[in-house]
Design a binder for these strands. Structure first.
Lengths: 146, 146
DNA sequence: CTAACTGCAAAGTTTTTGCAATTGC
DNA sequence: GCAATTGCAAAAACTTTGCAGTTAG
């Protein structure tokens, strides 16, 4: 909850690195995996610093935080509107370049009297690989975790 | 990861109570608030039991688990398709009774080669009350947390 | 009977935070 | 200089789990 709008921001190698890793990564890494990647460049970087920077960048609106199942957050360096598909079986996440139509959003605004800033759309299912696996093993119930 | 499909299920006062609380609640309570509510009826119920039952009910597909920000999961006893708006300022969540059109989903299936089971759509913005408050105080940057 | 379920408490995971030292502007 | 940032380690927050006793079918 660090929303001091007066506080001026300073550059640091650590913060730049975290952002660079996020921007150049095709998937949606967790704090832990960003940390591991960052250590290749700054071996002394700490996990706490990675978390602080991710929160800072998110609060500035320079990255997005996505949270799926239980604990872990994933981060996304791509700011243009896009959405995700997630595989319930293996946990993989892929981008879907679709856009939620304006009129749809306006209808929801009217219905809910919310002023809507952004939309998160997530498709949940089985990726090609896991689908094949589950056919081999025979069908089994999938958890409905979101 | 308790996907034993052979295991038969038994009724218990505790499980029934958790489900009843969830079904009768208009909002989307957390494990903690379900626990507090449940203690009014079964004072000896434990938080661990609430968690175990929520996971069990979710695995059976009788409730849905939603996860927003960092750690906390919310649970939803309504299974018919519906979606949510969430206020970034106060954290409140409301239902949106809209439906994602079939053709839209089919297009995503074709694009991604995922077999899609469900869709989660979340609108993020400011509720009426918080919007009014932020106008009074003058505009301020909103966090982009999802 | 017996496998599922419970309460309790301890352990696990992920994230935040206090502190003293360092660094960017 | 001085406040923002860092590394470290301890704490916090949320959830899961082991165990021994209880209960539903």
């Amino acid at each position: 909850m660090d929303s001091d709008l007066l506080k001026r921001t300073k550059n640091s190698r650590q913060r730049d690195l975290v952002l660079r890793i996020l921007r150049s990564s095709k998937d949606h890494p967790t704090a832990e995996s960003i940390y591991l990647e960052a250590r290749k460049t700054i071996p002394s970087i700490s996990l706490g610093t990675v978390y602080r920077n991710l929160n800072h960048l998110r609060d500035e609106g320079r990255i997005r935080e996505l949270s799926y199942g239980k604990g872990i957050s994933h981060f996304d360096g791509e700011l243009r509107e896009h959405h995700h598909v997630r595989c319930i079986a293996c946990g993989s996440v892929a981008d879907v370049p679709c856009v939620v139509p304006r009129p749809f959003i306006e209808e929801v605004q009217a219905q809910t009297r919310f002023q809507i800033h952004s939309v998160r759309l997530e498709f949940i299912g089985l990726c090609g690989t896991c689908e094949r696996l589950s056919e081999e093993k025979g069908p089994r119930p999938e958890t409905a975790r979101e």
